[in-house]
């Protein structure tokens, strides 16, 4: 009996480790290859770099990665902050206040969550073109906020609905107006739920490509995914350089993920992507 369980445990671990190698190998190859010469890529793809080519990273960094990272950071941060504020306000009113039109408004706002951005690309392009918002941060931030609203309202509505009304009642008895109550009582208590909405949207927007590709044509405004797509076309045979760019583009999020993995996994596996 004991022997058998050791045997089955060995089999389970063997299969699990073999499968994990399939997942890990592309990532390990990406990082090690970015430090190699082209010749090494062909001759010995799996050995560690003989003479690490740190210059690859410097060249990729100077070819625009730095600027792309900055653009991604600015666009993601502004969008996420706006999503959290706008959705939090709406979700609070929809969950906690009685007013005519509450249910239809809630349904309207969350109905958008299933809509793929591709179904609106043509009108969005026209709209942004007519308002001179093509090739501006605002041109992506506006739609990002709008497409972030449904899911964020859904999550925060669920949070506010469970919010104990005794706390609000106590604040009212102490003479708080609606606004005082929101800023002094509700807001501090809902920070954890906002943080998880923010994390979710950060991962989504940091990686967004479909909309960015039609709005941001100017090289000075490109985000990381756009920059990578650009390098892919430019450096068709400069593989070590492309791999360095890929590593530089992916590693920040991977490091943040490893550091905050519990929050990531709880948030991202909570509902959908």
């Amino acid at each position: 009996m004991k022997r058998q369980s050791t045997l089955s445990s060995t089999i389970v671990y063997t299969v699990l480790i073999a499968y994990s190698v399939v997942i890990a190998l592309p990532l390990v190859w990406m990082v090690t290859s970015s430090l190699k010469t082209t010749r090494e890529l062909f001759s010995s793809p799996f050995s560690p770099p003989v003479n690490p080519q740190w210059g690859n990273f410097i060249e990729a960094w100077n070819s625009g990665i730095a600027r792309y990272l900055f653009n991604s950071l600015a666009i993601t941060v502004i969008s996420v902050v706006l999503i959290v504020i706008v959705s939090g306000m709406a979700a609070y009113a929809l969950a906690r206040m009685q007013f005519p039109g509450r249910i239809p408004l809630y349904l309207l706002l969350i109905a958008g969550f299933a809509i793929p951005v591709h179904t609106t690309l043509v009108p969005l392009y026209r709209l942004l073109n007519n308002t001179d918002l093509l090739n501006t941060y605002a041109g992506v931030i506006g739609p990002y906020v709008a497409f972030g609203i449904p899911f964020s309202v859904l999550l925060m509505f669920a949070f506010f609905v469970q919010f104990p009304s005794e706390i609000e009642d106590a604040a009212r008895i102490d003479g708080c107006s609606t606004w005082q109550m929101i800023f002094r009582v509700v807001l501090p208590l809902s920070l954890p739920s906002m943080a998880s909405v923010a994390l979710f949207q950060t991962v989504l927007l940091w990686n967004e490509f479909s909309l960015a590709i039609i709005v941001l044509n100017d090289d000075a405004l490109r985000t990381i995914p756009l920059g990578l797509s650009q390098f892919q076309g430019q450096w068709t045979t400069a593989w070590p350089l492309l791999l360095s760019a890929l590593t530089l583009a992916s590693v920040p999020m991977l490091i943040i993920f490893v550091l905050m993995q519990k929050q990531f996994i709880n948030t991202l596996s909570g509902f959908s992507k």
Partner: peptide, 19 residues
């Protein structure tokens, strides 16, 4: 409270969809 979300959502999701 609902207005900002509703306005942004209408401009960048509802209107483009109808369009």
């Amino acid at each position: 409270l609902v207005a900002p979300a509703l306005i942004v959502f209408s401009i960048f999701v509802v209107y483009p969809l109808i369009n």
